[in-house]
Design a binder for these strands. Structure first.
Length: 596
DNA sequence: GAAGTCACG
DNA sequence: ACGTACGTGACTTCA
């Protein structure tokens, strides 16, 4: 039987603290009043630093006393010599920050450790315990119930929480013991120690900082959208001859293909329904006036529901800012993701969409928005990694890669490259990163399938080492079952030797794409850590707010602007030494759109 | 809760 | 003859 002990009086708290402070590493877990890290209060802390042993310290309710118990452990949390072992440490970082406690590293986050070991599996504590410790932990549900009758941990006495909380910390401890040697064995320890763990703090700061939103602007825009939407709705009903729910793909498909018979061999989705996707509808524009109206209607509806109407509701009433959360352990390639709200997919491609981006504004009139983005970072990386002399040369000379590509694949002088040619070349360049096929390229561009095939052939003749590089990635994956990035991040490709060619094809494209997308992710993470360190060291007021894969967004204090621009550019461009220069473009403005 | 669609890099 | 570009998250409909 494990030793799980309830520590519920001041003197035993002190004894526990005096023990823990002598250790090199401590696992802990917080029980809290809310899943929202910015408002959660601590109800209890469990500690473990030994197999089969853990302690649960309940925090009495009422802020004053809560702070008192927490303050006993504050020197432990802030000690920079004691490793803190947690499952999803960013959450604990936030909750302790709510009490003015700064949780200091070194950190060992078991969730992120496992993300590096097996990116495309789940990283929840119970899955990990089952997989690595052959043990099924008590479910939170067993304590608080589920659905409507779910209660808050607040309403449970400490004795009922003790076993659950102790177990959580003890499992976290044991997972660390498993994962630390595995990370070393797999060559992932440096990425873990020097990139992912320091990044946790940076992300926590970004989330806590939030970003300012111009809600009034959005309210006005929402009214505009609504009147356009109503107009389109009326037009669509009259063109169809009756009313229906345009937002229902099922009803829409019925109207377009059964009533109006716009296409005899209309594409179906995998469930047998008519597809009404933008891709399908775009090709039917010429057949009937209704089609374009539907496309416009849908794009406006999307803007209104996903952004214009919902973002203001996500402004935190206390801070008056939007606090997204950045997930460090979901994207299989090593990228971050953003949710609640997702600030990595704010519109920019259409005129109406850009109105949304305008609503992201500086903290106050002493600040501006600074946006810094890597120019074609993935193509530069593929040039670097393949060592293709033609592509490397193009970037070294600072030439426009898409124009040069067009000139070479269409075999015409640079100054005769048309807009359409450049655009097609750009599509091919992107296609390369994704693992092109003639079909895929023809879908994305104005080219036929045959033309696409020829262009891909030309492309690889132009950049011969790119083909070699892509093939070698696939061959590597076949042999070892994974591919890796410049910082040794791995992506396991279990289907790379599958007998099913669709499944295998997907894995093969991943073998090409993951090292590129993942390396770009590694590099911007290094830059973020470096920038954060410098902002801190110089005591600047400017703040990193968002990361959008190849872009960083800042609240830039006006009197720090020049300094900040230099600092950011240098950190980003210097985050990786490549045989081709990494180039960062900077933009400044009164909102996020202007900063581009 | 799955499916379809669409916003971004 | 097959199915077909990489990675995410959020909203609406509908069973």
């Amino acid at each position: 039987m494990p030793l799980f002990k309830l520590i519920d009086n001041p003197s035993s708290c002190l004894t526990l603290f005096e023990h823990l402070i002598t250790l090199k590493s401590v696992a802990f877990d917080l029980q809290t009043s809310s899943l929202d890290p910015l408002k959660a209060r601590v109800l209890g802390i469990s500690f473990s630093c030994k197999n089969k042993e853990a302690y649960y310290v309940p925090i009495p309710s009422g802020d004053k006393e809560g702070s008192k118990t927490l303050s006993i452990f504050k020197p432990l949390f802030e000690n920079i010599r004691i490793e803190k072992v947690c499952q999803n440490i960013k959450y604990d970082l936030h909750v302790l920050a709510n009490y003015g406690i700064r949780l200091n590293g070194p950190f060992f986050d078991t969730m992120i450790a496992h993300y590096l070991l097996q990116a495309d599996m789940g990283h929840g504590l119970s899955v990990l315990a089952e997989t690595y410790l052959n043990y099924s932990p008590i479910k939170l549900e067993a304590l608080v119930g589920k659905g409507k009758s779910q209660i808050n941990l607040l309403d449970l006495p400490p004795e009922k929480i003790k076993d659950y909380a102790c177990e959580f910390a003890e499992i976290t401890w044991r997972l660390k013991e498993r994962f630390a040697p595995l990370l070393k064995k797999e060559g992932l320890y440096s990425l873990f120690k020097n990139v992912e763990m320091p990044l946790v703090c940076v992300l926590a700061k970004m989330e806590r900082e939030g970003i300012n939103l111009d809600c009034e602007g959005l309210t006005i825009f929402s009214k505009e959208l609504t009147s356009s939407i109503t107009k389109f709705e009326e037009d669509i009903y009259s063109l169809a001859g009756f009313e229906f729910n345009i937002a229902s793909p099922k009803q829409l498909g019925n109207v377009l293909f059964n009533h109006l018979k716009l296409d005899d061999k209309a594409k179906k989705t995998k469930t047998g329904q008519f597809s009404t996707s933008e891709e399908v509808l775009s090709k039917l524009k010429k057949k009937h006036l209704i089609v374009e109206k539907i496309l416009d209607f849908r794009s406006l509806l999307k803007l209104r529901s996903t952004y214009v109407n919902s973002l203001p509701g996500l402004v935190n009433p206390t801070t008056k800012r939007i606090h997204s959360s950045f997930n460090q352990a979901v994207a299989a390639t090593g990228r971050l993701s953003s949710k609640n709200p997702n600030l990595q997919n704010i519109p920019i491609r259409t005129e109406k969409g850009r109105e949304v981006r305008k609503a992201f504004v500086p903290k106050n009139d002493q600040y501006l928005i600074l946006a810094a983005d890597y120019s074609q970072v993935e193509l530069r990386l593929i040039a670097d990694l393949s060592g293709d002399p033609v592509m490397v040369d193009t970037f070294k000379k600072g030439l426009d890669i898409h124009t040069i590509t067009a000139s070479k694949i269409f075999n015409i002088p640079i100054n005769e490259v048309s807009r359409e040619m450049r655009s097609n070349a750009k599509t091919v360049n992107f296609g390369i990163i994704y693992g092109v096929s003639a079909f895929g390229l023809s879908q994305q561009s104005s080219l036929s399938r045959k033309e696409s095939g020829e262009i891909i052939k030309n492309y690889f003749e132009t950049y011969p080492k790119l083909k070699t590089y892509m093939d070698s990635n696939v061959a590597f994956a076949r042999k070892f079952g994974y591919v890796k990035t410049v910082m040794n991040r791995k992506r396991i490709l279990k289907d790379i030797n599958s007998r099913n060619r669709v499944v295998r094809g997907h894995a093969e494209r991943n073998a090409v794409n993951a090292p590129i997308q993942g390396s770009a992710a590694d590099i911007i993470k290094v830059a973020m850590i470096d920038i954060d360190k410098k902002l801190e060291k110089l005591g600047l007021k400017s703040r990193l707010l968002l990361q959008v894969h190849d872009e960083l967004v800042f609240d830039a204090k006006k009197d720090e602007l020049e300094l900040l621009k230099n600092l950011v550019k240098n950190s980003m461009e210097g985050a990786y030494s490549s045989s081709v220069p990494l180039v960062v473009d900077l933009g400044v403005g009164l909102n996020w759109l202007e900063a581009h």
